[in-house]
């Protein structure tokens, strides 16, 4: 018996338009629910603040038929409905064959049970897993409060090592770095219709209360990934404390284009170490035009963490991330890393 959940009104939306209608009508009393794996735990733990009232109405978008789908069009790309579960993504043959890095990233999320419920849209808009955010007593910056308590407090695990901004959360999503490496677009619907947001512009910085550009009455309807050139190779690696049910201490999504033993292009995104999925262009530059070679990779890995400015308790994330980047690049380059 979940005695801790308060009485909440629950609306099944039948279309995107209906969901947006209810959202606009109820304003900040309402929240969208899909898998609910993040939202319900926030409600259960009574997490609230000036910028995050406990919702009184939940708008269910799992009842919108076209939201749960995976469509692949050869030559164009992959379109994933926002309520598609992480399990469906990791077990889709098309995703695994054409966009393997995303399947790997989806598989790394939480537990089987959570991946059966949790959706791709929810994974992108989940709230911070900073423990000051996740206990009700601290009115932290991300709840609309005055300050971050983690900077001068305890910040060993789910925290940024980049010394950016007011809040030191580390963005928790596993799929976001992979989607960013794959150049995805997030399709957002609101009162004035649809807009397509390149994922590079989807996440906000740590000065903002909210983590994404999504407005209160907007919802994600689709995630689109363009077809990748044939010489693309990718790798997603995640380091965590426990074998399952854990967010990343650090993760790396690497997407490489290799022709005749040289890197045509590279994208390297770090997860779990910055307030948003963190692209490292200088490390990408260190690869571009170079021969596929362990020394080149080691250099790029070192460059990837050059901007690191860890907190008092998370300096270990710097060597950890550097090693992960190296392993991800080695793997995506088809080189055997020393094991």
């Amino acid at each position: 018996m979940l005695y801790e959940i308060p009485q909440i009104e629950h609306v099944n939306a039948r279309s995107t338009e209906e969901a947006i209608y209810w959202l606009s009508r109820y304003g900040d009393k309402a929240k969208v629910i899909a898998g609910g794996t993040d939202l319900l735990s926030l409600i259960k733990d009574k997490i609230n603040g000036p910028q995050m009232p406990i919702p009184e109405v939940l708008i269910n978008i799992k009842t919108i038929p076209e939201m749960d789908r995976i469509d692949y069009s050869p030559g164009k790309g992959l379109s994933i409905g926002a309520t598609t579960t992480l399990y469906d993504i990791e077990s889709s043959n098309e995703v695994r064959e054409k966009f393997g890095m995303l399947a790997d990233a989806a598989h790394e999320v939480a537990t089987n049970q959570i991946r059966n419920m949790g959706t791709i849209g929810g994974n992108l808009v989940q709230r911070p897993w900073c423990w000051y955010f996740r206990v009700p007593q601290f009115n932290c910056y991300k709840k609309g409060g005055p300050q971050c308590y983690a900077i001068s407090g305890s910040h060993k695990y789910y925290f940024s090592m980049l010394g950016l901004g007011v809040c030191v959360m580390a963005h928790p999503s596993d799929t976001a770095p992979a989607l960013m490496a794959l150049g995805a677009e997030i399709v957002v619907a609101g009162e004035s219709g649809q807009r397509r947001v390149p994922i590079d512009g989807f996440f906000l910085g740590p000065q903002e209360v909210f983590e994404t550009v999504l407005k209160p009455n907007e919802i994600i309807t689709e995630v689109f990934i363009p077809e990748q050139p044939p010489n693309t190779r990718g790798s997603f690696l995640k380091s965590r404390l426990r074998g399952t049910w854990d967010f990343a201490l650090s993760s790396v999504a690497a997407r490489l284009q290799i022709t005749n033993g040289s890197y045509d292009d590279a994208k390297i995104i770090l997860g779990g170490v910055a307030p948003f999925p963190f692209r490292v262009p200088l490390a990408e530059d260190a690869l571009r035009g170079k021969r596929v070679d362990e020394e080149v990779i080691s250099l790029a890995a070192a460059v990837a963490v050059k901007r690191a400015h860890p907190l008092a308790q998370n300096g270990y994330k710097v060597p950890l991330t550097q090693n992960l980047v190296k392993r991800a690049l080695m793997s995506a380059s088809g080189l055997e890393a020393e094991v």
Partner: peptide, 12 residues
Amino acid sequence: TPDAVLKALGKS
């Protein structure tokens, strides 16, 4: 935990 191991190894 991993932070203690990396620290003891002199890596951080």
